[in-house]
């Protein structure tokens, strides 16, 4: 049941229709940033208001919602947003990627491959990939309109000149459908390949910047690079201390006051699922694993 006194999923129906129209346009032009009339949400800009508005516009009573923040289901932001929709839309929530029909995310794509029955909603702080290079909005819009993307490669050129390789490890720019350069939001470059030809619908909401964009299912998403410096998704060269996974994105966690540290899966659901299946890492049984063990 939803909260009495509020419309289903908080936003009024007019607003949801406005957002859905923006979403339709975004799906029709993959990677193109569609302006929309971003609303005030009952939390501050920068806490996922863009993603919440997109979720509110697409969610229905039978959806199952999962919310992650940096891959974790149990951080404050993820818990708050999940509870927000449980209250205002009365939907079932889950921490299991495979069970969810809508996954709202901040800074990660789940390790479990997504399906055509799922929608991934990204929270985006800065939707304009060219912004740091070209501060003028009129100019960046024109650059997108004319596919004038030399400047984007200048940034990568600089990185290689300075460090010998592309050091950009998150919010790594991509070319969508061979046409628009897009900011994938601050996900690690490790996740970039998951966007390419994903069966799931990917929607992006930037509340403060008032932009919505999308990658429809099975759309080409190519990370920018040079012929002689190809794209390399970055990942710590370690295994998860808890579940032993070597193919997942790892967070480095400081565990005591003596500089002790531990690499663990950033995707908590992935890690939990693996441990439940009997996988064990070098630090299995550590307090970080929670009460479950």
């Amino acid at each position: 049941m939803s909260l009495p006194g509020y419309n289903f999923a908080y936003l009024d129906e007019q607003t949801k229709r406005m957002i859905r129209r923006a979403l339709l346009k975004a799906v029709a032009i993959p990677g193109y940033q569609v302006p929309f009339a971003s609303r005030e949400m009952p939390l501050a800009y920068g806490w996922g208001t863009g993603g919440m508005q997109v979720t509110a516009a697409v969610i229905g009573p039978h959806d199952v919602l999962k919310v992650i923040d940096q891959g974790a289901d149990d951080t404050t932001n993820a818990v708050s947003i999940r509870r927000f929709f449980a209250l205002t839309a009365g939907v079932r929530t889950t921490e299991r990627t495979a069970e969810a029909t809508i996954i709202q995310t901040r800074h990660r794509i789940p390790e479990t491959p997504l399906t055509a029955a799922q929608i991934l909603v990204y929270q985006v702080p800065q939707p304009e990939p060219l912004r740091k290079l070209e501060p003028r909005e009129t100019e960046t819009r024109r650059m997108h309109a004319l596919a004038d993307y030399g400047l984007m490669h200048v940034k990568l050129y600089e990185d290689i000149a300075r460090h010998g390789r592309i050091t950009l490890s998150y919010d790594y720019p991509v070319l969508v459908n061979g046409r628009h350069v897009m900011a994938p939001s601050p996900i690690p470059s490790f996740d970039n390949p998951k966007m390419h030809r994903s069966p799931a619908l990917q929607l992006f909401g930037a509340g403060r910047e008032k932009r919505i964009y999308a990658v429809p299912p099975y759309t080409s998403v190519e990370s920018l690079a040079f012929e002689d410096h190809p794209f390399h998704p970055w990942k710590a060269n370690e295994a998860c201390g808890l579940c032993g996974a070597t193919d997942s994105y790892l967070d480095e966690v400081v565990v005591d006051d003596r500089g002790g540290r531990l690499f663990v899966c950033s995707d908590t659901d992935h890690c939990t699922t693996r441990r439940a299946a009997g996988h064990r890492g070098a630090a299995a049984g550590h307090a970080l694993a929670g009460a479950g063990e």
Partner: peptide, 24 residues
């Protein structure tokens, strides 16, 4: 704010050059 090499290379990259070594 961009290096001299990046400044000179920009027009090449805008014209489609994608080989870092050759641009350099």
């Amino acid at each position: 704010a961009i290096s001299a090499g990046g400044n000179v290379g920009e027009r090449l990259m805008a014209a489609g050059a994608r080989h870092w070594g050759r641009i350099r």
